[in-house]
Design a protein around this nucleic acid. Structure first.
Lengths: 397, 397
DNA sequence: GACGCTTTATTTAGTCGCAAACTATCTGCA
DNA sequence: TGCAGATAGTTTGCGACTAAATAAAGCGTC
């Protein structure tokens, strides 16, 4: 833990990143947001202005003092590519620095195939080559544990990957910085840059969908755990025995309210045999059974998240994931359960639902790259430094 | 989040603290332990040597290179006072920088009394005045939530305290730095300096006793949560309904395996009416019922801690608390349950039992002060800076 | 016992970012 | 009109720490 971490030009990158993700800001605003002194911002921006990376825009009307002169990025051509890997496809998005999606695609993918990593590399190389503008890097979201964003060695049972050297393989194939991270954590990072992280330093991002996951952000930094496995709330033990879970345990949260569990329950209760979408449709059409099933799941989620809140005491909990589209039915059970299982002093802990669309996973992966200018903890490693270097070098390519 | 936090002379304090808590070290060792460059250590130690705060000791035989010259503290007269406040007494210890106890005492205390804070201040003032050597500060451990170590405003239902301004009151009464912290967190900090924290950056300290608690240390820093309430695992919801808990909820972990719950179960099962010590005695004497009761508690603790491990992915879990004296009986249920509820990839997470004696709570509180030279996060606030200042000023008083 | 290797400690030159003092420019109020 | 107060931005000098080069002092080995 270096007192002053060896980080090449972190603040300039952070300035560029902030201007890119938040739009034009005054110097004073930059200083406040980044927690550095105004003096430093003056120095940094002076250099960036001289190098034409930043331009002085308009002057905003005063609020009882000298008017602020806003700064903006000289070039808005910066962007990143995000990829989300699942058991049957890869979703790709091209994202600009401000978070806007400039293109997206979905590709069939078989992670069990002999040269799956090579196939992934090919997919991504095409995307890199077709990228319009100056590419800062590629972010990859994986449903599994990643030892570090930097090395990107992956343990992902659902993909059949063990000790897969995803980061290394892609890096050498693509020639641009590649950051690999657990998929839920990418969403947490995205919230840091574009969502709740603007107003809160410590929060949880819980996802409901195929699995149940949780990203932990503490004081603005993603907490990954000792071995990159923090936030595995899908396997919180909810009962001593209970249904068998894919992880080998019994009574895991996911074995109760994961997508597969809900689909099985829907079958057993005679609601539908056609999967989760049909179940939601049934609820939409007024099926009391379907609604009850979601409400029960919501209640259990509430109980589990109450426990996590007791453990971590976050400022706010964000709920996300593909399952969130049925949230109105989950909430019926969740709201009461969550409050009831919280101790009185925590009962005020707010939760928020973010909007969802299919791109969001991949978008989160791209956010990994776009957030790396803000990384003060070194979590992004060498690849993060490379991203900052490219940002620093300017859109010359 | 300042990139370079405003901290007055942090490294010199850390050097002194490290020499005090770990004994003589070479410069190279100091550099490695503190994560600073050898150059810095040379500069710092040069200054400290010049001011006679540090002395050069012997030269240790080489291991294939230039022999290391070890440095030690010139004065070992530094110490701190630790206080643990409970519902019926206050335990005090005087502790030297190296963690050795130089004196201890226990005083009756009624936190519900009208001027309880004043009474506490009187107790502590006597201790401060009678302290032998140079006092760095006073640490106070409280069974409740503390907003920050610095301000020390306390929310402690078990003491009947709400918004009690403990820190402020004691500070003005004592005239030395006062750090206030949740009691479990003080143990976590003590482990950081004297225990498992020497070898591990991220760990949990779980306590069993009157309550069930947990301290969270992440990358060497105590994680306190957004409102100082992290680690309240005593109120993890273990079931949808279940026994009523003092917190107002139902089915909390503590309502199953806290001291009061165990004592009630012992009564109901006809094992003993005489409290927890009698229960352990019964187990010692071979009572199968008593042993089963502990084993059941252990099993539930294992399940709960497995969940916490899934959430936080620590390197190691340390078990502590006054209840740990009966650990041999807990363990029967704990070991299997903990492993069984962990997912395969976490099943290797080790747990350790620390020895226990009654001073340990107060000792933890003292460690709060003795660890403040290592605080890089600013968690100790102004009071921490004051401690560092006193350390820096030398044992002149 | 000369050479290479390892580890420890120091020196030097330089970077990063801060605090403090300052200037600049506006609002509001008497 | 003029001054207090607020907010924005700049300049200057400095403290803390680093990286890189160097010196110091031992070990092993042929």
């Amino acid at each position: 833990m270096p007192a002053q971490p060896a980080r090449g030009d972190l603040v300039p990158s952070a300035v560029l990143g902030l201007l890119g993700t938040r739009g034009p800001l005054s110097r004073a605003e930059l200083a406040r947001q980044l927690g550095v002194s105004p003096a430093t911002v003056t120095q940094i921006t002076k250099a960036l202005l001289a190098r034409d990376l930043v331009v002085e825009l308009d002057q905003v009307p005063s609020h009882g003092g000298r008017p602020a002169r806003r700064l903006g990025l000289a070039s808005t051509g910066w962007g990143a590519i995000g990829a989300k890997v699942t058991a049957d496809h890869v979703a790709l998005v091209h994202v600009a620095l401000d978070g806007s999606v400039t293109g997206s695609s979905v590709h069939a993918f078989d992670p069990d195939a002999p040269h799956a990593l090579d196939a992934l590399a090919v997919l991504l190389r095409d995307a890199v080559e077709s990228h319009d503008g100056h590419l800062l890097g590629v972010g990859v979201g994986i449903p599994g544990a990643v030892d570090s964003q930097d090395s990107g060695t992956v343990e992902a049972p659902t993909l059949g990957w063990s000790e897969a050297r995803v980061g290394r393989a892609l890096r050498s194939a693509l020639g641009v910085p590649v950051l690999v991270e657990n998929d839920v954590n990418t969403l947490a990072v995205a919230e840091r840059v574009y969502g709740v992280g603007r107003d809160h330093g410590s929060y949880l991002v819980a996802t409901i969908g195929r699995g149940i996951g949780c990203g932990v952000v503490i004081d603005g930094a993603l907490y990954r755990g000792a071995y990159g496995g923090a936030g595995e709330i899908g396997h919180l033990p909810m009962s001593v025995d209970g249904p068998a879970c894919a992880c080998g345990g019994q009574g895991c949260l996911e074995a109760y309210i994961g997508q597969a569990a809900l689909e099985r329950a829907a079958r057993e209760r005679g609601i539908t045999d056609d999967g989760i979408d049909a179940l939601r449709l049934a609820a939409d059409q007024g099926s009391a059974d379907a609604r009850a099933l979601f409400a029960e799941a919501g209640a259990m989620l509430g109980q589990a998240l109450a426990g996590v809140v007791h453990t971590l005491d976050p400022e706010v909990v964000v709920l996300l994931g593909e399952g969130i589209t049925a949230w109105q039915y989950w909430e019926v059970g969740f709201a009461a359960s969550f409050r009831r299982h919280l101790m009185p002093s925590r009962r005020g802990t707010p939760y928020r639902i973010d909007s969802w669309d299919e791109d969001k996973w991949a978008l989160g992966a791209a956010a990994l790259v776009l957030a790396s200018p803000f990384d003060q903890t070194g979590a992004t490693g060498d690849q993060g430094s490379l991203v900052r270097e490219r940002l620093h070098a300017g859109p010359s390519a």
